[in-house]
Simulated scan of single mutants.
Amino acid sequence: MNLPELEAEALKLPVAERARLAETLLASLDELSEEEHRRLWTEEATRRDAELDADPSRGRPAEDVFRDARARLR
């Protein structure tokens, strides 16, 4: 079974069972080694960088990002 098939099957579960599955999957991420965390974050940063290179209009000026973040903290 591939990931899209697994996702489709998981989405057929009742809400409580989906929540339990999500909790189990999230807890499994806490068990990753520091090296695995680093690798996953590097992959995510690379993916986001490629996404921004492909469509620069999706980016936001840093000053806007920081302004919005400060507003949320108030």
Rank of each mutant, 00 (worst) to 15 (best):
R47W: 11
R39D: 12
T24N: 10
A50P: 01
R39T: 10
E9S: 11
E43C: 09
A22H: 13
E44N: 08
R20I: 00
E35A: 15
E44V: 13
D53R: 15
L13D: 08
E44G: 13
L21V: 02
P4R: 00
A27H: 06
E35M: 07
H37W: 15
E7V: 15
A45Y: 12
P14F: 00
T24E: 15
A8P: 04
R67S: 05
L6Q: 14
A10Y: 06
R60N: 03
L32C: 05
D49I: 09
L40R: 08
A16Q: 15
L73R: 07
V15Q: 10
D55C: 05
A19R: 15
G59N: 05
R38M: 07
L6R: 12
K12P: 03
L13Y: 04
E43F: 12
W41A: 06
L32F: 11
E5T: 11
E36S: 05
R74F: 02
A62Q: 13
M1F: 07
S28W: 01
E63L: 12
A8L: 09
K12N: 08
R67I: 01
D68H: 08
E43I: 10
L25S: 10
A45D: 10
A27M: 06
R39Y: 01
E7P: 00
L32I: 03
T42L: 12
E63K: 10
D68N: 13
S57W: 01
D53M: 14
R60A: 11
A45M: 09
R39H: 12
E36I: 01
T42A: 13
V15N: 09
K12E: 14
R70W: 10
R67G: 02
R18H: 05
P4G: 03
R18Y: 03
P61W: 02
T24H: 12
L3K: 08
R70C: 08
L25W: 03
D49A: 15
K12T: 07
R70A: 15
A27E: 09
E9R: 14
A69E: 09
L73G: 04
R48E: 15
L32K: 09
E43Q: 14
E23N: 07
R38D: 03
L40I: 07
V15T: 15
A45K: 13
E5H: 06
R18V: 02
E43V: 13
A71S: 13
L21C: 01
R18S: 06
A69R: 08
L29I: 05
L13C: 04
A8E: 15
P56N: 02
L21S: 00
L11V: 03
